[in-house]
Design a protein around this nucleic acid. Structure first.
Length: 463
RNA sequence: GACCCUAUCGUCUAGAGGCCUAGGACAAUACCCUUUCACGGUAUGAACCCGGGUUCGAAUCCCGGUGGGGUCGCCA
């Protein structure tokens, strides 16, 4: 049974990189009919917030990645961590260290001055035949893991292949702070063990933590899971994403008018491939997803391609569903949407040409409110000869029994013919009067959707 | 600095030694469609980081360099 987890720390919203990590862990579980677990790593009390927890859950819900188990909270598992620490202390796989922060800082400074890798020197590490000094009075010790001194720790990474670290490179890291609270690298191990995680899928900024975690797992006599370290996602400009540079919340994409299926499809394709496939559903993705086609180097986010996918999914989407979104956006702009019964038809007319929901809302806007064509546009397009022709067209349309595209088109064409005019000569002024802008979808469709009453009223106002 | 990862069109990528005169997609450019603007269609330009090996043969394997990234916290 495959068990994967997404383990964010709630210090901010769910950003695009986290979403991609979650997506791959989720898809892998789906692929193998396994279990996807959400675990909130909130042991950094100073930076974790309930709002961030909610933001992460909201983001995942919007994308449709529901956890099968959890969310679990590390802060609620303190007793368990302390229990394991006590066991390790008793077993001799961990020990108390009384070196102060100041001493540590001095140690590091010295090592850096000698161009060495900063690391704990093992002063308080018990060894056979080694005599430890008496613990200094009044100093609360931290607990350190007793890492093996030699040999290598290696694993076959699901995305990067075999990775090896010499134990000599690893120092004895702290698993419990002076106040007794456990640290991240330790909690992760206990959680992955207790939750029987089989595949640890995470960002590749964790590669360096993995050998330490494997060593702790071994010290505990636990099975070592598989690891897959996904490369990071770079911003549109090729720069690293950070809070102050482009790392936006996935919910920002919703606000910007993206459809979740477009974001998901885009993210799936960023760092993973299945031959030449570009457009696919999440069902298809889950059926295909394996780690043998994940890429091992960082990928640059490309908004243009996301836009293309979004436009594609907009065309596919049900007009009723899109109308709900458009109505919400219009209402937020203060438009009286209750007074716009034609909204769904408008959306159906425009969804093939819009790039996102905000553009769709912008396009629908003039259909729902009283338009006031700018004097400049009117002066430019509504010349006296055109005005006369429009009046005759209006009368012809007013006499129509059936207000439908075909009949409207017929009326327009007859008017054109009798005045020896070409379509654009009439269509452009009409668009300006009706919608306040010289471009729109095909005229007869606009006339039909707008409806007799609005068309005649809008014409009547300027003619 | 040490350790670890990484390198195909501008971007995402296909590529598991001969199928590669390197394929697809986004973007770009041109043309077509057309009732304007879009949509759509067709076409064009555009890449194997460098140097050594291994091999009959290397984008693919090995080594070295260079570039990029990550990590070196009583943060996660």
């Amino acid at each position: 049974m495959i068990r994967t987890r997404f383990a964010p720390s709630p210090t901010g919203y769910l950003h695009i990189g986290g979403a991609r990590t979650a997506l791959f862990a989720w898809a892998y579980a789906r692929r193998h009919h396994g279990t996807f677990i959400l675990r909130i790593e909130d042991t950094d009390v100073a930076r974790s917030t309930p709002e961030a927890v909610q933001a992460i859950i909201d983001g995942m819900r919007w994308l449709g990645m529901a956890p099968d188990e959890g969310p679990f909270y590390q802060m609620q598992r303190m007793d368990r961590y302390k229990e394991v620490i006590a066991q390790m202390l008793a077993a001799g796989t961990a020990y108390h260290c009384y070196t102060s922060r100041e001493e540590l800082d001095a140690l590091r400074a010295g090592q850096e001055a000698n161009k060495q890798k900063p690391r704990y020197d093992g002063f308080w590490r018990p060894e056979p035949g080694k005599t430890l000094p008496a613990p200094p009075a009044g100093v609360a010790p931290v607990v350190r893991f007793r890492n093996p001194l030699d040999g290598v720790v290696a694993w076959d990474d699901l995305v990067k292949g075999r990775i090896e670290f010499a134990n000599a490179e690893l120092d004895d890291f702290i698993i419990a702070r002076a106040d007794g609270t456990p640290t991240y690298n330790f909690c992760v191990v206990v959680d992955d063990w207790d939750m029987q995680i089989t595949h640890v899928i995470r960002g590749d900024d964790h590669v360096n933590n993995t050998p330490r975690q494997i060593n702790v797992l071994r010290a505990l006599g636990a099975d070592v899971p598989e690891y897959g370290h996904l490369p990071m996602i770079l911003g549109d400009d090729g720069q690293k994403l950070s809070k102050r540079h482009g790392a936006v919340s996935v919910m920002q994409y919703e606000e910007d008018g993206y459809l979740p299926e477009a974001v998901l499809n885009y993210l799936a394709r960023l760092g993973w491939s299945h031959g030449d496939e570009e457009i696919f559903s999440m069902e298809q993705f889950c059926a295909w997803f394996e780690f043998d086609h994940t890429s091992s180097s960082a990928a640059q986010f490309n908004t243009e391609k996301l836009n293309w996918l979004n436009a594609h999914y907009l065309k596919l989407a049900d007009a009723g569903r899109l109308a709900v979104e458009v109505r919400r956006r219009l209402a937020a702009q203060g438009v009286d949407v209750a007074n716009c019964p034609i909204l769904e038809s408008v959306v159906a007319l425009y969804k093939e040409r819009a790039g996102n929901l905000n553009e769709l809302a912008d396009a629908a806007h003039p259909f729902c409110v009283t338009v006031h064509p700018s004097p400049e546009l009117l002066a430019q397009h509504l010349t006296e000869p055109v005005r006369a022709v429009l009046i005759s067209l209006r009368d012809k349309m007013a006499a129509l029994t059936a207000w439908q595209a075909a009949a409207l088109s017929q009326a327009v064409k007859e008017t054109l013919a009798s005045h020896a005019m070409k379509m654009p000569q009439l269509a452009i002024p009409l668009r300006v009067i009706l919608l306040g802008q010289p471009q729109s979808p095909t005229l007869d469709a606009v006339l039909e959707v707008l409806g007799r009453e609005r068309v005649l009223e809008r014409l009547g106002r300027v003619l």
